[in-house]
Amino acid sequence: MADKTNARVLQQIRFLKAQDVVFFFVGLIVLCGAFLILITLILDMAQTGIPRLNQEFFFNFPSRFAARAGIYAAWVGSLCVVLVTALLAIPLGVATGVYLEEYASKGWISRIIELNILNLAGVPSIIYGIMALSLFVYQFGLKQSILTAGMTLGLLILPIIIVTTREAIRTIPNHIREASYALGATKWQTVSNHILPYSFGGIMTGVVIALSRAIGETAPLLAVGAVAFIAFLPTPPVMTEAPFVSFQWLMDSYTVLPIQMFNWISRPQEEFHVNAAAAGIVLLTMTLVLNTLAILIRYRFRKKYKW
């Protein structure tokens, strides 16, 4: 009798141990499986696209002939748009983050702002696009310009920057602030001399991730009416004559990498799909480099400050 119960218990234990091992491998397979699928897809795209990556591809304008088409206007456009995005979103986002963490009292106003940011982060990007179409393109009369595109993406990534700024500031312990106040510093002196420098790493991580998101974003720019066939560059910002600086480029038409890629995917001819793959590789490399950079910044700063 006792032997029988013993055997049953032993059997059960063996079963549970086996179950544990099996699940460990199921988890591992699922995890690796997700990566494997993605890596296979990327490799396949790379195989198609990489032979297209030569100097001409980077310095040719789009063309009706797939073999002659390039991404010159697209990557220059992407850089210009991201510049505008950064100039709008970084100051606004960091300022909002600082206000919410350091200044705001726990009243209903800050509660509303907080809730609002949470909800903004969940608004689909295409909604930002159609909002910008009505507001920037038609009401402000900015047309399909680099400025419109940059501002649209700026609003889109604002919640990301705000959230990461707040998280970065929150990791600074209170005794740092108290020490600063004890020495007679004002609130702004504390913020500018201590809070911002110490949270710089965290904020930069968020900024880089947000900008990489902006580079890859397609839908809102399609909605504001980006055109894929742009055979010229924006006006150079520097001139040889007075007044030497020109802001004309802000109002120029543009195209960006993801839009160019989308355009090539949508064409029926297979030669254009090769171009799309090549553009995809460039786009993927850009975002992966930026994200790796973000991860590196985070590690460095985590090591630098130990409270």
Partner: peptide, 10 residues
Amino acid sequence: AVPTVVYGYF
């Protein structure tokens, strides 16, 4: 972080 247009291509 992979751009969605790349997922579309896939």
